[in-house]
Simulated scan of single mutants.
Amino acid sequence: MSVGTRIEHWFRRTGSEVLGWLLVPVGIVMMPAPGPGTLVLVAGLALLARHYVWAQRLLVPLERAAIEAAKFGVATLPRILLSLLGVVWLVALGFIWWIKPNIPEFDVLGIGVGPELPAAGWGTALGLWTSAVAALGLLVYSIVKWREPRSARRRATDWQAP
């Protein structure tokens, strides 16, 4: 058995489980922070689903809901354009957090904010840009995978006309 084969065998058994257990808490922590927390969490669950039935049970409804959301999101051109606008918005926010502009000072629930952006810097910018790349990739994938051709959409609405 070669070294490459042994490493591959180890990763399929142990490495995927260890990586899954690392990704789940990291994904949970990333959920409120800017970044692809949900994707990281689901990736961890997907790796754990290879080893645990409870993870499979959690993953099946998540997968079903994600597919339905993706189909809904690419069903019309305005929805696709709004998603693209969201990607542009994330990129723009990343640049704003990267350049660290001064902001007015104000209080939120008694906590002072300003004159600098909270968590300003390259780390937050990188998280926002990673989210933008992930969103764009998922949008393109959804368009290719689930967007019906124009002729099929037309036929589906033709039979419903009065």
Rank of each mutant, 00 (worst) to 15 (best):
A152Q: 10
T76D: 15
L126Y: 13
H9G: 09
A75K: 03
E68I: 12
G110D: 10
W146Q: 00
P118W: 02
D158Y: 14
A46M: 08
E17A: 13
S131L: 05
A75T: 01
T76S: 15
I99H: 15
P162V: 14
T124F: 13
F95P: 00
P118M: 05
I103R: 06
I28W: 04
W122N: 03
W159I: 12
W89M: 02
V26T: 12
V113F: 05
V140Y: 08
I103F: 11
Y141A: 06
G137A: 01
E63L: 09
W122E: 04
L77M: 15
Q56E: 15
P104M: 09
L23W: 03
G73C: 11
W97I: 05
P61D: 11
G73H: 13
I96W: 05
A69V: 08
D158H: 14
L58S: 03
Q160T: 09
A49S: 10
L85G: 09
V113C: 01
W129Q: 01
G94I: 09
L90N: 08
A119E: 13
P118K: 06
H9L: 09
W97K: 02
D158K: 13
A49N: 05
P149E: 09
V42H: 08
A46I: 10
G112Q: 11
P104G: 09
A135V: 11
P101T: 03
L62K: 06
A49V: 04
W97S: 03
A152P: 12
R154G: 07
P78V: 12
W97Y: 10
V113E: 02
V29L: 05
V40W: 00
I143A: 03
H9D: 08
P78L: 08
P78S: 08
R153Y: 04
W122V: 07
V88G: 15
S2E: 10
G137C: 01
W159L: 11
L59G: 10
Y141D: 08
A135H: 11
V74T: 00
P32G: 13
E68R: 09
E105H: 06
G110Y: 13
A135G: 09
E17D: 13
P115K: 07
N102H: 06
V144E: 04
V144D: 03
N102I: 02
G20S: 03
